[in-house]
Nucleic acid binder design. Sequence first.
DNA 1: GCTAACCGGACTTGACAGGTCTTTTAAGGA
DNA 2: TCCTTAAAAGACCTGTCAAGTCCGGTTAGC
Lengths: 147, 147
Amino acid sequence: MMELTRKGDYAIRGIIYLAGQPLDKISLLSDIAAAVDVPQTFLAKIFQQFSKSGIVRSYRGTGGGFMLARAPEQITLLEVVEAVEGPITPNRCVVAPGECDRDGFCTVHPVWEQVKRQIRQLLSGITLKDLANNENNPISATSKTVF
Amino acid sequence: MMELTRKGDYAIRGIIYLAGQPLDKISLLSDIAAAVDVPQTFLAKIFQQFSKSGIVRSYRGTGGGFMLARAPEQITLLEVVEAVEGPITPNRCVVAPGECDRDGFCTVHPVWEQVKRQIRQLLSGITLKDLANNENNPISATSKTVF
DNA sequence: GCTAACCGGACTTGACAGGTCTTTTAAGGA
DNA sequence: TCCTTAAAAGACCTGTCAAGTCCGGTTAGC
């Protein structure tokens, strides 16, 4: 349960690649797709969503492509995930107040609220800078700072 | 994203009802289904899974039905959820070591591990006793103890 | 052996993840 | 200023799986 979809996975791979490129470089979709091993056509749709949510800027026509709209340290993993997967909602109950008619008496309700809070807090504390190009032993480096 | 399925939702409702009944009482599936407003045929499937995982005991034939296999304070929400939804895995990567071929260099990997740990820890700290029949203002009562 | 109740597999349906195809936009050269 | 080509945007398709339904089978009491 609680699985990220493949779309979300691909999205993260793709944007981490962008975060590892020079900031002012416009990257081709085809390059990104090849580098992170994702079907280009599918990645295209994902980056359209990124573009709409303002995480990346897109340029059409010859010489076009994508680049980050902000610096990597100003884009959180939470933003990235929610841009393509929608808001984090462990249960339908907690998408919005009043959504669930059992709201008033359901004792599990606050549990899901808490789960939601914890995940959002964790993901919002991680930026693309943390995730990109940690050349020297990325995992342990990341692990040390984050956990 | 990260949504509990309806099955999981129903499962929790159903077992909380059981936890609110006298411990030695055998409840009819039809009663449970009516009480928590879930299609009986579907709830039947769910309770079969509960029965297999040893969370509830089932009795067939006339006078049969279901009751908790253990005391409510000894059954955690984590158990209940994982019994019907399977293990909590925010990403395919983290279901098991070696599952993901990007494992070795994927910097996001430890993040999902952490998400998984946090959710499991939170859910395992909540028992059916916490969730059942808090007559006097259930939510705030639960909120105070848990959060 | 009749009836109450759960067991368990097969089937149906609708939504959505996952992927493809067509249209629009922009740049650059004849 | 057209035409061609590169590239993203958007419409479209399709297979899978959640969410139920149905029905014969099995077990237990009367």
